[in-house]
Amino acid sequence: MSKIFVLHENPLWVEPLRTAFEKRGVDAEEWMLDQGRVVFDRPPPEGVFYNRMSASSHTRGHRFAPELTHAILNWLTLHGRRVINGPRALYLEVSKVAQYAALERAGIRTPRTQVAVGREAVVEAAEDFAPAPFILKPNRGGKGLGVRLFSTPEEAAHYLSSAEAEPESPIDGIWLVQDYIQTPEAFITRCEFIGGRFHYAVRVKTGGSFELCPADVCALDDKSASDAPAVTFEIVEDVDPELIAAYEKFLLTNDVEVAGIEFIRDAKGRAFTYDVNTNTNYNADAERKAEIAETGMEAIARYLHDELQLLSNVQNHVAAAE
């Protein structure tokens, strides 16, 4: 019998989805992919597979979880299983370089960026951005971890030579040096998509922080630091419909069905898209305040259930024909 399978490496982020499944009376099986094996010559079980692998898995001690997920997704697609956020989505999740290339190919503006490997290359790239402020970020990060703002190449060089940089170094060795988009107000906008369609947008007041994970568990973690800046989330409706349409087309082209896409506007009102998160989470407090009819996780649970029913109908039709 077919069922829903959720592929992930962080049980805390799946808790709201479990609640949404229980609300619908759906039985879903979780595959914790911090370690394991793939028996390629055996077919996977029948069902709908939802990939929630995160680029930040290494920060939770799961260094090779994306690589294991990559093998599993290829195994699933080899056998024709229904996969939500398949190999292409995972590829985008773990590489901002890949994201920017795909976004630019779709005609979506991204911040000016240079790719650098090694301290000297980073400093050389930074010199091309000076005297304007610039951002240094890991190619594979997640949750805004390791993102730093600098005013001069010398500041970046000092940081890279310090002990502080070591735990924030990119797991793949690739740094991005990027324009700092100066905005009149300290907020970014995150657009949520489920089934490739726009669900809602969230305005995130950053408080000067780059760590903007919307999940409740991230907020609890932030409270452990007394000097952590306040980050607030508010569901809004004033989002450019042409930008939403461009995002939907981009997701369709890249075989991504569930994602959060973040953009920021500069002083001239131009939108710069800088992150595609295929392992999206939702802020429960913002959803309650907005009194939305269906939360993000409830919408995902419904979408997965609908896909499972569609799959079951096809299987029953084939069986009847035989």
Rank of each mutant, 00 (worst) to 15 (best):
A126M: 14
M1V: 15
E67T: 14
G260Q: 02
P229A: 08
A228P: 03
E168Y: 10
L149R: 07
A89K: 02
A65N: 04
L7N: 05
R109W: 03
V48Q: 01
Y303V: 07
P131K: 11
E248G: 13
H158M: 12
Y200K: 11
L251N: 07
L145S: 01
I84V: 13
I108T: 05
E120T: 12
T152F: 07
Y159F: 12
P170W: 10
K23C: 08
F49S: 02
A284Q: 14
L68T: 04
L252A: 14
G141D: 06
N254W: 12
D285Q: 15
K143H: 13
V14S: 13
V115G: 00
V122C: 08
A219P: 15
G296H: 13
D238Y: 14
V97I: 03
A186N: 03
Y274C: 02
V177S: 09
V236S: 03
G144V: 00
A225V: 02
I261E: 04
G146R: 01
Q309M: 10
C191M: 08
L7V: 10
N316T: 14
A271S: 12
R81W: 14
R148V: 05
V147S: 01
I261L: 04
L92Q: 00
V258F: 15
I84C: 04
S224A: 12
A225F: 09
D266Y: 07
G142H: 10
V97K: 03
T273N: 01
V231L: 03
I244S: 01
N254V: 01
E166V: 13
P11L: 11
H317T: 10
I84Y: 12
L160A: 14
Y200G: 02
E291L: 14
I181H: 00
G269E: 06
C191V: 15
L33S: 05
N283V: 09
L310D: 10
T278Q: 02
N139S: 08
R109F: 12
C213K: 03
K3C: 14
A132P: 14
E322H: 11
Y247T: 12
E30I: 15
M1N: 10
L136T: 02
V276D: 05
S151G: 07
P87M: 10
R302L: 09
A271M: 04
Y100K: 07
A156L: 03
L17M: 14
A55N: 06
H199R: 13
Q114N: 09
A290F: 06
P153Q: 13
T280D: 08
A156T: 04
R42A: 12
S161K: 12
Q309D: 15
E30G: 05
I194N: 03
T232A: 04
A215W: 14
K205P: 02
F150G: 03
G107F: 08
I72T: 15
W75N: 11
L212E: 01
R81H: 13
A215E: 10
I235Q: 00
R140S: 09
E192S: 11
R270K: 13
D275M: 06
S56K: 07
F64D: 08
